[in-house]
Amino acid sequence: MARRLSYSARYTHPADQLYQALSTRQYWDDLMKGFRDLTPQSDVDSFVTDDGGLRVVLKQTLTRDQLPAIAQTVMMKDMVITREESFGPFDAEKATGEYTASIPAGPGSLTGVQELFPTDTGCTIRRTTEVKVFIPFVNGKLEQLMLVNLVDLFRGEAEFTSDWVTENL
Rank of each mutant, 00 (worst) to 15 (best):
N168F: 07
R25W: 06
F117D: 12
L145C: 02
R25M: 00
S8E: 12
S46Y: 06
F47E: 00
F117E: 14
L147T: 05
A101P: 05
K141W: 06
A71R: 03
E115K: 04
R83C: 10
T111N: 11
P40D: 13
P118C: 01
S8M: 06
Y11V: 00
M79W: 05
A105Q: 10
K141R: 15
L22C: 12
R4K: 14
E85A: 08
S86M: 07
K77H: 10
F134W: 01
V151A: 10
R126L: 12
V165P: 05
V56P: 03
G53I: 06
S42Q: 11
F154I: 03
E143W: 00
L147Y: 05
F137L: 09
T100I: 13
D37L: 05
F90R: 08
S42L: 01
T119K: 04
R127M: 13
V57H: 06
V74H: 04
D152F: 03
M146T: 15
V74R: 06
E167T: 11
V148D: 14
L54K: 11
E85T: 08
W164C: 03
Q20M: 05
T12K: 02
V165D: 03
I125K: 04
M75P: 00
V48N: 07
D16S: 04
L38D: 10
F117Y: 15
D65E: 15
Q26I: 05
E157N: 13
D30S: 10
D51C: 01
E159V: 02
Q66L: 09
Y11K: 01
S8I: 06
T49W: 01
S102T: 11
D163Y: 01
L54W: 01
D152H: 07
P40Y: 11
P40W: 11
P89W: 00
D45L: 09
S109P: 05
N139L: 07
Q20W: 03
A158L: 11
Q72I: 07
L142N: 00
Q26P: 03
L62E: 12
R10W: 11
S8A: 13
I125M: 13
R83K: 14
D78H: 07
K132S: 14
F154Q: 07
L142W: 01
G52Y: 08
P136S: 03
V48E: 12
Y27Q: 00
T166C: 02
